[in-house]
């Protein structure tokens, strides 16, 4: 099993932004299946008060995308990980398109992400896929473009680097 130890060796994300729990299948350079369990103990739920209704507990939609992007990032960097964001290269999402949300995701739901590499051009990887909950589609991602940049290019105060 690919669990937290292996995930943290590849991704620089940490609490509260490490949104992957386990990898269930990985074919390097091809595709990944990864799991994220949603819980009401994530900090995003902290601001909900006693008047919150059931729909308020829907997991933030942009974080569904972030969690999927982390499975895509793990796939893209599996063979050359850079888990220290201060050194080496940083993985960045240059663009994402065709993201569709199909149903709310609630605490207790387990997201199963699937991501597949469709193209690699120089330092850029193109990945597509989506996520399901109990077999039902929750998210589709038409196309995500990941780029790798030296961490030094990203320091505050420097001129903004051009990303693809």
């Amino acid at each position: 099993m690919i669990g937290q130890l292996e995930i943290r060796r590849v991704l620089p994300h940490r609490f509260p932004m490490l949104l992957l729990d386990r990898v269930t299948e990985l074919v390097p350079g091809r595709r990944v299946t990864a799991v994220k369990a949603v819980t009401c103990n994530e900090p995003w739920y902290q601001g909900l008060g006693p008047d919150a209704v059931a729909a308020d507990y829907a997991y933030p939609r942009v974080l569904l995308l972030e969690s999927w992007c982390q499975s895509a990032g793990l796939l893209a960097t599996w063979e050359s990980p850079e888990p220290d964001a201060l050194e080496g290269r940083v993985m960045l999402f240059g663009s994402v398109s065709g993201v569709e949300y199909h149903r709310p995701v609630l605490p207790g739901d387990v997201l199963e992400h699937r991501a597949a590499i469709t193209r690699v051009v120089d330092d850029t990887v193109i990945i597509e896929g989506g996520a399901t909950v109990a077999g039902e589609p929750a998210l589709t991602v038409g196309l995500a473009v990941l780029a790798f940049r030296p961490a030094g290019e990203l320091r505050p105060g420097d001129p903004a680097p051009a990303l693809p």
């Binding site: 939609r61 942009v62 995308l65 960045l92 999402f93 240059g94 663009s95 994402v96 398109s97 065709g98 993201v99 569709e100 949300y101 990203l154 505050p156 903004a160 680097p161 051009a162 990303l163």
Partner: peptide, 15 residues
Amino acid sequence: ELVAVESTRFLSPVF
């Protein structure tokens, strides 16, 4: 209700 992110391009980092 947000139903889709049709496209997004990230041009420079936010700190």
